[in-house]
Design a protein around this nucleic acid. Structure first.
Lengths: 244, 244
DNA sequence: GACATTTTTTGACGCTTCGTCATATTATTG
DNA sequence: CAATAATATGACGAAGCGTCAAAAAATGTC
């Protein structure tokens, strides 16, 4: 790993500056109101310079998504390290995901936006590759825990061939729920409880269905949620409370 | 219900024409390549006339989504009528949703696109109301089956207060899975099975978790899938086979 | 059928935003 | 300090949205 030249460092710093500005604009005003001119104005560089860093508006937003996935990887890795049963560690991933979503609701939506083919075709090859490798990495953390659960007998051996199906189950469940949460559907008016609560319950029921021990019927799940979130995500919780 | 005047009929016919053209363009070239000029050219009316029907491009796409949800309501109602256990009927909803998605993969993505706030703010009030009432109607079909399951004892009474949570569980699970299926993530390369298969398994496991009888461990789920889909969605299956 | 009035259609136009590229500016080298 | 290379700039072309004054068509009246 050669040390970076001053040039390269400046380049990286500016890239960070642009990304921060874009993220801030995105959070404040949404995707449609994020314009390259506004980004340029905010960071006090010309548009051409922005385009030296990012191939298109979509490429810039995709880069923000990579950041988001990196943040989630960080969270997933913390969950992986949680000193508890495999099931608790797997649950910790979901809790982390939910809390991150509460802190940065726009990020979830952006990821889905970028996964839209129409957007994707304007993203640079390089960035798509980066995104793909991050996605691979993050699913790998989840599947590792499932594997360990099988190895230690907390999950039946017969599911060895289903590991990825189980991972996909948690993924789709959370992804769908958090996207619905972020959309403008008036869930509350329609009689639905807070999404995070429903999601937590359903995630537990789902793991019960796979007979992943210990079952939620033998657990105080409310207490478990508290325990995990305060152990791993104290910082996020604090930020959340500030925001309210 | 007064009979429609010739004018009104012409108006409705043209609206249908525009919607068909827009849907076709959308399916062929995606959201970004759908332009109002192109729609106007295709239907051989001027752009101004299109704008007499739809307040904006987003409003037009939202109208397409309402059509999609109407189609799904149709499918859900067929599932509701299925002569089987409550669990089979609830599963039938999921199967219908999956098959519809296979036939019209773009529709799933469009619904999510329209749920994006940035898009929503350009949709007419009227259309948003239409969408909301359709969404209410479709969730209602699902929750009716859950209620019947409790009433007939196939689902424990203790879940009476959780009906909407159970509905939300199925909804989010399917919504997330189908969106991931439609996105360009190379799931297969990443070692994931076909999404429809994983989804079917996970949906069953989820209901097992709620102890909704009869459990999938007492059922040949592959056969059940076949049975339901050929009984209710023969037409869709036929169309699917043609497409391949 | 001729004229007046209302309704509908049209497409040129203004505006916004993306992304480019010739030119200007700054940095580096001999 | 001049020559050259690297970088930054913002005016500009292209594309698309949505509008609106004017044109065309439909309807009503005598």
């Amino acid at each position: 790993m050669p040390p970076l030249t001053r040039k390269q460092r400046e380049m990286l710093d500016r890239e960070e500056l642009i990304l921060s500005a874009a993220q801030s604009l995105l959070h404040q005003h949404g995707y449609n109101h994020l314009t390259m001119d506004r980004v340029a104005e905010t960071v006090e560089y010309s548009k051409g310079t922005i385009y030296n860093h990012f191939a298109s508006k979509e490429d810039l937003v995709c880069s923000l998504c990579c950041r988001t996935i990196s943040n989630l990887i960080d969270i997933f890795e913390r969950a992986y390290q949680y000193p508890g049963t495999t099931r608790e560690r797997y649950c910790a991933i979901g809790i982390g995901y939910s809390l991150y979503h509460k802190l940065h609701p726009m990020d979830t939506q952006n990821i889905q936006t970028v996964r839209n083919n129409a957007v994707r075709e304007k993203v640079s090859e390089y960035r798509l590759g980066e995104m793909e490798s991050l996605e691979l990495k993050i699913t790998h953390i989840a599947s590792s825990i499932v594997q360990e659960a099988i190895d230690c007998g907390e999950l039946d051996k017969k599911h060895q061939a289903n590991i990825n199906t189980i991972v996909f189950g948690g993924w789709s469940q959370h992804y769908g729920a958090l996207l619905l949460d972020q959309s403008d559907i008036p869930l509350q008016e329609m009689g639905f409880d807070p999404v995070i609560d429903m999601l937590w319950q359903n995630a537990n029921i789902f793991l019960d269905g796979y007979q992943w021990l210990p079952l939620s019927t033998d657990t105080d799940t409310n207490r478990l949620f508290e325990k995990i979130s305060s152990a791993l995500f104290d910082n996020e919780i604090k930020l959340l409370k500030q925001a309210v």
